[in-house]
Design a protein around this nucleic acid. Sequence first.
DNA 1: CGCTTATTTGAACGCCTTCAACGTGAGTGG
DNA 2: CCACTCACGTTGAAGGCGTTCAAATAAGCG
Lengths: 248, 248
Amino acid sequence: MSAHQALQLFLRKLSERSCLNQEERRAVLELEGQEVEYAPHRDIVRPGELTDFCCLIISGMAARFGQLPDGTRQITAVYIAGDMCDLYSLMLPKVEWALQALSSRLVLLKVPHRKMQDIVHAYPAVAEAFWRDCVADASILSQWVVNIGRRDALMRTAHLFCELGLRIEIAGLGRRTAFQLPVIQSQMADALGITPVHMNRVIRALRQQGLLTVQGRDVQVPDWNALAQAGGFESGYLAIDQRWRTLA
Amino acid sequence: MSAHQALQLFLRKLSERSCLNQEERRAVLELEGQEVEYAPHRDIVRPGELTDFCCLIISGMAARFGQLPDGTRQITAVYIAGDMCDLYSLMLPKVEWALQALSSRLVLLKVPHRKMQDIVHAYPAVAEAFWRDCVADASILSQWVVNIGRRDALMRTAHLFCELGLRIEIAGLGRRTAFQLPVIQSQMADALGITPVHMNRVIRALRQQGLLTVQGRDVQVPDWNALAQAGGFESGYLAIDQRWRTLA
DNA sequence: CGCTTATTTGAACGCCTTCAACGTGAGTGG
DNA sequence: CCACTCACGTTGAAGGCGTTCAAATAAGCG
């Protein structure tokens, strides 16, 4: 995918929740930045740093990591192509988390805060769309707290596969019943708050129950409704199919 | 506390992270709404509802709840006096969570979205401050995912007591070493993703280690640094002591 | 005081972790 | 072309943290 296609995808995601007119849409599409490729485990953003850019994912996947003193990690957000990750940093440039590549090849567009501020300043409705994007991101985060806090490992896993499948489908990068997930099991474990060993057992259990097959990066969901039920998944928190605009 | 005092507290919290001029500050202080008292377990906001107001807490505590089909609940955010809870709803009026009183007497100011939109429209810097407040809230949420995902019950609990103590101190409602927490143990358990029974045992363990004493609603922290270390607490994620303003 | 709700403690169970080992596939260099 | 390496995936067994169930005590509130 090209930078321009990623911007179009980003705009489409914004437009799913916010109403933007022709001029505002053009402003988003005209965002510019530096195109960079990252290898896994390379920090895009380091905790404690002052950030001066946002990252639009062109291809691959990235994640936000929280880290404990003893080195154990917890993924707090997963981003796919067309996601503007770390939009938060526009409001709080001093970030408290790390941003890293998940997939082996991650290409992203580093858009300077300066340029983001320019269109936020010029177009209040775009600012609102960005704000709403942050809120939608927080809504997902909120759901993750519920998952990790109150569901067992099997439900959590089923739920995460549902979320990722649906987000990938909405982005037009695959179908919820068959998609590519360029992520290894220990990364999934880091997202779910379990150990890699147990992650493996849970995936096996899901396979044995006919809910999921994972071969390499290839995810197949034979019966999506069954998986959604096993994970207690309800898509409402993704805040899709509802558009808002409070500014004139 | 009065509605006006709560607004002043809210403004002070905003001002800790955002720069606002005299006029913008006045606009915030002039927010109006309906003053309402809620009993515990009474829903302020119900999941799936369309909300048309934000809640400023005048006194008491409230929480955001995620709920599973089987009835188990997970608290995803805790709010104290001066917090504008559900600021999110200004961007996504269709909320996916419940908002309820924690304390026996919760008084809040229901500010209509209409009035919030007015000042957001009139003062871009206030909009930015609100946006930043949402991001700060999400930063806390992010930390909660790390806590629940990767720390054992004792660390989690210590961490939450540190966070609440510090937030209460910053709001001027107590000291981090001695404060009132109008919350029962099973609610704490709901916030930490553990059972009430285990919550009780963990609090006992903290007491036996000399880190914490809880008697009724009265929390005493003999050695705050020790508690912070036990919980791996670092205050950075609360995004205090750092002010930003991107708009002119 | 009597009722309800919250706290506290005990004992058994179970999900998940931990540690350890083996299998497997892709990439590399001899 | 094959052995080597290394990271990932897979499986087994034992142990621990937290749950579950049950009951007793304490505390709030009419």
